[in-house]
């Protein structure tokens, strides 16, 4: 990822042995031999995931200072803090593949790395905080529970830690939603409006339909991806529709209906034009998100340098005292 270099093609015998290990359900660890392509796919997937966690702090962080009760305030700070932690675990996991965190962060700030499209939408009311926990963390859980069995050890282990923490996020979100839905008319209207804005972008989180997703087949063979985008999306819809019904909220899809044969909630067509615009950088908040991260990074440079300089001085002092 760091330099363009021409590689000799992987030894087919080694690749076969590697794929046999994966088929047998073995875990690949940092020091194991792996095809270069596997390594690069993992770096791409893991760093995208980490970037998403970090950027994801911003839409929710936007409401910390306005959280309407002390209990909600601390819960939201803890959630955003968890997201920083998740980014950290996954960046550290990615580093085991031979790349520096600084390099990955630079790619994010340069705009060359991708992150989940959902975080390019604005949070416009307090209710958005509840709905994000319910939909976005809900969708992430559907994705991540599967990733916990991913073939790459450090990623799978990071995911176990992430999933434990994420369950609290989704519950917290749904509790906010339920409280608002059972609250004053103004609160109920607030949460219904938030649902109307976040539903479709949440479905888009699962990525393009499998027919349009070039990486899927290979990633599934390597047990880095365990289910297809469409399968995960359907699972999320099936879980979520009854939850909406339970709090008397409607979902903004006139075609939503239950199919008794497959026991799936069938849903209407997704506007992939919107999705493509957003991942291309033309979503409502893409620029603001990256700008915020750039500013934090640039403003923080003197702090990072100071810490390094201090450590170097201390080491020099200890060395000369020992001499």
């Amino acid at each position: 990822m760091s330099q363009a270099r021409t590689l000799p093609p992987d030894d087919p015998a080694k690749v076969a042995a590697f794929e046999a290990r994966i088929a047998a359900g073995e875990s690949i660890e940092p020091k194991d031999w792996m095809p270069e392509r596997y390594r690069r796919q993992l770096i791409r997937m893991m760093s995208q995931h980490a970037h998403s966690e970090i950027v994801g702090m911003l839409p929710e962080g936007n409401w910390i200072t306005r959280a309407p009760s002390l209990r909600r305030k601390v819960a939201l700070i803890a959630k955003v803090q968890d997201e920083a932690g998740h980014g950290l675990y996954i960046y550290c996991g990615t580093e085991t593949l031979g790349v520096d965190r600084g390099e990955l962060i630079q790619q994010l700030l340069d705009g060359t790395a991708k992150y989940s499209s959902i975080f390019n939408y604005p949070t416009l009311s307090w209710a958005d905080i509840g709905v994000i926990g319910w939909f976005v963390d809900g969708a992430a859980i559907v994705n991540q529970t599967i990733l916990a069995k991913a073939s790459y050890g450090p990623y799978a282990r990071a995911m176990i830690r992430v999933c434990k923490e994420e369950n609290f996020h989704k519950r917290q979100g749904y509790e906010i939603v339920a409280t608002l839905a059972n609250g004053t008319p103004a609160q109920k209207a607030m949460v219904q409006d938030a649902v109307n804005r976040w539903w479709w972008p949440s479905l888009m989180m699962f990525g393009p339909s499998d027919t349009d997703s070039p990486n899927t087949a290979e990633l599934i063979r390597w047990k880095v991806k365990r289910k297809t985008n469409d399968e995960l999306r359907q699972r999320f819809v099936n879980l979520t529709v009854p939850q909406a019904v339970a709090v008397d909220l409607t979902l903004p899809d006139p075609e939503l209906r239950f199919d008794p044969e497959t026991e799936d909630w069938r849903f209407g067509p997704i506007d992939w034009d919107e999705f493509n615009q957003v991942i291309r950088g033309n979503g409502p908040c893409n620029r603001e998100r990256l700008e915020a991260r750039r500013r934090a990074h640039d403003d923080g440079a003197w702090v990072r340098e100071a810490a390094s300089a201090y450590a170097a001085k201390q080491r020099a002092k200890q060395a000369s005292e020992a001499a």
């Binding site: 020091k31 580093e95 031979g98 520096d100 965190r101 600084g102 440079a301 990072r304 390094s308 300089a309």
Partner: peptide, 25 residues
């Protein structure tokens, strides 16, 4: 961890070297 996957024997003092841009080890 940040260099070649095959390297196993870095010890002690080399541990906390400072990478460029104040990167922390």
């Amino acid at each position: 961890m940040s260099d070649a996957l095959e390297t196993t024997h870095l010890v002690g003092e080399q541990a906390a070297t400072i990478a460029p841009d104040g990167q922390w080890p």
